[in-house]
Design a protein around this nucleic acid. Sequence first.
DNA 1: CGAGTACTTGAGTGGAGTCAAGAGTGGTGG
DNA 2: CCACCACTCTTGACTCCACTCAAGTACTCG
Lengths: 226, 226
Amino acid sequence: MFEQASAPIDSSRRHPGFAQAAIGELGIRFKLPKNRAVFRAGDDADRFFEIVSGAVMIYRILDDGRRQVVEFAFPGAICGMTAGEQHESCCDTLMPTVLRSFKRNELGRSDAFRMRIVKQLEAQLSAMHDHAVSLGCKTAEERVCTFILRLSALECDVAHGVKQVSLPMSRKVIADYLGLTLETVCRTIADLARRGVVTFGEGKRHIVVPDVERLGGTACSEAQYA
Amino acid sequence: MFEQASAPIDSSRRHPGFAQAAIGELGIRFKLPKNRAVFRAGDDADRFFEIVSGAVMIYRILDDGRRQVVEFAFPGAICGMTAGEQHESCCDTLMPTVLRSFKRNELGRSDAFRMRIVKQLEAQLSAMHDHAVSLGCKTAEERVCTFILRLSALECDVAHGVKQVSLPMSRKVIADYLGLTLETVCRTIADLARRGVVTFGEGKRHIVVPDVERLGGTACSEAQYA
DNA sequence: CGAGTACTTGAGTGGAGTCAAGAGTGGTGG
DNA sequence: CCACCACTCTTGACTCCACTCAAGTACTCG
């Protein structure tokens, strides 16, 4: 009935030995290659992570294999903070990624640190609200445009008024994030390209946005009530 | 193309005078009737709120009137915390509700308070992840079952093994939360009732769950990878 | 008790999913 | 360097779940 998502990356491929690599109070900095598990649902949530460079995805998997990517995390973001004892989601790297790992109880370290964490959690909550709007009431085309727009806001090369966005993830991952199938994502991007709303850069993972306004119009924005 | 959601409740119906009602450091406690605005998207986010009793919904509205209810908040939850200067969502009461209002800068008050806020934000983030799973990859029936199950976990009368859940919101609000139409919500509940997975209590807003296991099976749960 | 709102049910449609086949891309090893 | 293989991406044809439109019924509250 539903396409099986690829199972989570094998536990043995998780960052081996790093967590034990000691150091006391400051975050432990370490690097992972592409497609490695940072943590798995069910792991003890005694540590959380800050993305220094690279990118990760946080996702959940249902019994029958359906997968929902709930967040992407880029440099500056934190992930793996949870009120419970165990992680409820999985987290994989999308590209070579440098992380900083903190013990959960380091949270009490300093006011400045804690305020940063609160700000980050607020930002993530707000991003999840945006994402819920996409998933709950936008069409396939609006979701894809909103997604490209969001990526272009964080990371893009701007050359003579044209933005180039590089997608660090496969069509399947985008589909699992947007609540669509990979075929629908393909078709939608192809259609946007046909109409000139976007064009392809070098390779299918580079999207060029000639007119951000136009893409924004196609993405459908939120009403303002002041 | 899309059904117009009712516009947000008029600003003049917001809690009049309460914010100015002074008091210094402790939260200001106040009560609102049903269907009142707690805050609006665009309002200054200088205060945030704790639900003491009752219930509220947090939602966003798109240009063309589509509405997405992103969260419900019940006693113990906080709402209105945002990293930005203005609120990005609207918040209305679903029933007579007692709230406690805090100045944003009161956040620095005490460690215990701050830790409570962090825990709450983590819990809300986790709830949003669950919600994204529903919106992104569950069928109408699974969403409705997941929703009833979640409500039954927080609030329900248990009498001789049978759970009764009271829905404090209209079918339209449930639909806007689950990313469905109100007709689909109606049909789905009717169908569950026909099959005996749920039955109606007194009035259409009281759902009786004879067998929580069975409802859980219909809701579709998450895989565990330890 | 009556008016307005909330809810239910039916019939028909369409957007995104499913199934399937083929093209492009990148990494590896001879 | 290029041939091969695996994986990712694209496109087409058909299907189906949830949406739309529409009519009618049940609450709720003044």
